[in-house]
Design a protein around this nucleic acid. Structure first.
Lengths: 349, 349
DNA sequence: GACGAATGCGCAATCGATTGTGCAAAGATG
DNA sequence: CATCTTTGCACAATCGATTGCGCATTCGTC
């Protein structure tokens, strides 16, 4: 079987005895073409196995035909970002758009040379030079989560009410009887993390519940985690609830607590701010907030597509466009249902 | 600031007083251009903030300028595939190639219309129609792992010696004293899974160690997992080692075993065939095989790039090109170091 | 001083499709 | 029957860059 050059529109035109222009109109549906000609061209196209060269079309239409997807560097939150990515891809279904991944180490100075029509960015970190460069290109950008202060504003954003979600989680722990809560929070400059932090602090002040933060740099290994939890329990023996912000970490905390002889949820309740594939399958399954990454990606992608289609005003009054995403709390066994069922560490009467 | 059309090569040519052709040669480095002209053109390009329109270039060069990345459908092995993806992206660094994600539900019939120069595919499943269609396009394809029998062969593949890796794991368990092993294996039609299965069976026959398979359909929830493990221990009380093939599952097994009062690794050893972010941070940390997904993606990507550059013979004698990847076993605390240290469940003398 | 080679650059074709303009034939209206 | 619209299609410009060819000019050598 000879390697045959793919058929071009010219080939189709020749075969059906019309001009290239007519062939184009016949196939694309627009313009004035007789039904009979249209059918003849369609037949020729089918016989030649013609598929339109999207590169040429995009050139003519002055579009790139793809959107760039930027994801944070570092190896955290893989589960989240993979789902997010699939969501973005889903948003381009049946549209003539492709999703291309932007290398994390792409030179920021060359950001303008990225041949894309717009960008979707997830969790922009204030310190990432490439992220800033992309936001400065002037092309449409939709971010998932807001960008930190000092970073050029995106065209639009998809975000969620993290303050409310945080309060929901904390209220939930409190109803389960929590009186002293620790929040394990990653040390990264992303707005949703700050939102969780601030909402936690505000809630603590308002509710008068003992609360402290434990910042985490990087991804701690098992021994380090053991040391951290051990130190924590020594310093604050009264801790009876833990909020894990990083996704996979909660399972590590859980097994470390068991190792140290603490029962979950009886002695200490656990919730994770980010749900993940492993959280529901450990014993006890860990309650978590479902950030709905796939939906977030889908919404961000769709928003960008609308912007590119010109269907959405670039700047509605009152600043950049923001779309809200509802989060879902998944109650599992690592939190106590009611305060009354709670067994304190001190022996009963 | 007015939205100004990006500068074209013609603009650069006009500004430096040369023809478009000369400007092109001056910037691309090829052809005969005087040093002085070259400098003048470069200056003009810099002033105009010119970046070459890669769409136009690709059209002229009859290339697509991107490679398509296909990943299996379903939500398993997220951690692995995300790293794999980053590896592929890394392979395109500094080359004029982008990585575009192929939607999992892309219509197989239109696979030929995908405007890419070649494909990288991970873990092709024999039942996926789109995967087959892609392999039939005739374009260069590099797969990670071999394709199942009956599926059109790819141009080249990156794979690993799963039989050897399996034996290594099993030998390791045996040295730790294992006498009755259970292998939890996902019910999917991918060659590496079959390789693990077959190697396990062969090893069992050769070594005379008791062994059984437990096929898993889908991703079991916590309660289901509990039931499975419970049933397993009831049916085979002598089980003293478990091999988990799916990645995140091992942590679920671990905590379920603890729940059931079995000590790991003293009563039952655990290893995971696929390493993941959570495995090292639970107590005890779970021994696992590092499949080196990033490296796999990188190698697959590089191989495809070589194929596209024509640097590698399409079909060396002896069938399709195959590159081997070394795997790494990470010994952790969920396996016993030596048989002598093993504590049996029956009380001591 | 003459002739061949090398150099520098402009011209124009080309990649493959889209789309505005214009002309001829067919149909509608008086 | 003459004029006015529509309809159907061909022509050619265009998107932005790459590249083969050919013409001057300059350089080198005898």
């Amino acid at each position: 079987m000879a390697v045959t050059r793919p058929a071009t529109l010219q080939d189709v035109a020749d075969r059906s005895g019309v001009s290239r222009g007519t062939a184009s109109r016949a196939l694309s549906g627009g313009g004035r073409v007789s039904a009979e000609t249209r059918a003849r061209v369609a037949a020729a196209a089918a016989e030649l196995d013609f598929t339109t060269n999207s590169g040429a079309r995009n050139l003519r239409r002055a579009r790139a035909g793809s959107i760039g997807l930027w994801l944070p560097q570092g190896l955290r939150f893989m589960d989240y970002y993979m789902n997010f990515t699939f969501g973005v891809v889903e948003a381009t279904n049946d549209r003539e758009l492709t999703v291309s991944l932007i290398p994390g180490d792409f030179p920021p100075g060359k950001a303008r040379s990225l041949h894309v029509d717009g960008f979707v960015m997830a969790d922009v970190d204030g310190h990432d030079e490439l992220a800033r460069a992309i936001l400065t290109t002037g092309r449409p950008v939709v971010t998932s989560e807001l960008v930190p202060p000092g970073v050029p504003a995106p065209t639009a954003s998809v975000t969620a009410d993290h303050a409310a979600a945080t309060r929901l989680l904390l209220d939930r722990l409190r109803r389960g009887g929590a009186e002293s809560i620790v929040v394990l929070i990653p040390d990264i400059d992303q707005t949703w993390v700050s939102a969780v932090h601030d909402a936690t602090a505000a809630w603590s002040a308002a509710e008068g519940v003992g609360l402290s933060f434990l910042p985490l740099v990087g991804v701690p290994a098992a021994t380090e985690l053991h040391r951290i939890v051990d130190g924590l329990l020594a310093a604050r023996p009264d801790v009876d609830a833990i909020v894990c912000v990083p996704d996979g970490l909660a399972v590590g905390i859980l097994s470390t607590l068991r190792e140290l002889g603490r029962a979950v949820p009886e002695d200490i309740q656990i919730v994770s701010y980010v749900d993940g594939a492993t959280l529901p399958i450990v014993q006890p399954p860990i309650s978590a907030l479902d950030l709905r990454p796939r939906e977030a990606g889908l919404r961000a992608g769709r928003l960008l597509v609308s912007l590119l289609d010109g269907g959405v005003p670039r700047a509605a009054e009152g600043g950049p466009l923001t779309e809200m995403l509802d989060l879902e709390y998944h109650e599992r066994a690592s939190t106590l249902p009611e305060a009354s069922t709670r067994r304190r560490r001190e022996p009963g009467p």
